[in-house]
């Protein structure tokens, strides 16, 4: 998989004069997995949103292949798959329709084995509003796994997941990393995440 370098350089974020985080830096290359740890309200989501360009940093910069992401826009976004707190599924549509109209899908003939592994096959034709929290989470995760993008950004991926799905998700992450992909995960459930070389603890 073709990959790039994501760099965060001495990033600080203030909201209404209040400090969210300051002076965070890292380099992320192909095969790297960055874990962002921290308690509730420690700024994990804010950090992740700045990495996606949804929130502007007060100081510092986010670089993709040494260019600021605000300047290169779609050149960055074509590599980025982001799982937010909300699952970004449309509750009125069925899971299959959500998949069909998913804006980030690049390949029409993807294998649907992810849905089987997540035990979602029998729920494909029910509206997302009728799925349980865990099922919607797994559906949103499958979209990221199937997206074919190189940088996966997960905000609390293990929330609401059963242990079997956690194991499968970690397998897919490991496979993605060995395929030269990049993963960023934020979590407050340290027991679920695999050990990695890159780690940020927010406080």
């Amino acid at each position: 998989m073709q990959s790039g370098v994501l760099q965060l350089q001495s990033a600080s974020l203030y909201r209404d004069e209040q400090l969210i985080f300051r002076e965070i830096s890292f380099d992320l290359k192909g095969g790297d997995h960055l874990i962002i740890k921290g308690n509730n309200g420690s700024g994990k989501t804010s950090l992740i949103r700045t990495l996606c360009g949804l929130t502007q940093l007060t100081e510092g910069s986010v670089l993709w292949n040494h260019s600021p992401i605000d300047d290169i826009g779609s050149n960055y976004y074509q590599h980025l798959a982001y799982l937010a707190h909300s699952n970004s599924l449309i509750p009125e549509l069925t899971l299959l329709e959500n998949l069909t109209y998913n804006l980030h899908r690049t390949d029409l003939d993807q294998d649907h084995s992810v849905f089987e592994e997540f035990q979602l096959k029998q729920s494909m034709n029910s509206p997302v509003a009728n799925l349980s929290n865990g099922q919607s989470r797994k559906a949103a995760l499958s979209f990221i796994i199937m997206s074919g993008k190189s940088l996966w950004v997960f905000d609390e991926p293990y929330a609401n997941l059963d242990s079997q799905s956690i194991v499968y998700l970690n397998q897919r992450i490991a496979a993605h990393l060995s395929d030269n992909g990049m993963v960023i995960t934020s979590t407050n459930r340290e027991e679920a995440v695999p050990t990695t070389n890159l780690e940020i603890t927010m406080s």
């Binding site: 360009g53 779609s74 976004y77 982001y82 707190h85 909300s86 970004s88 804006l103 980030h104």
Partner: peptide
Amino acid sequence: PDLINGSLEQLVLSRHS
């Protein structure tokens, strides 16, 4: 509704204009 269910964010993160 799109803001609440999160699909508006995905629109912003799309590689399209």
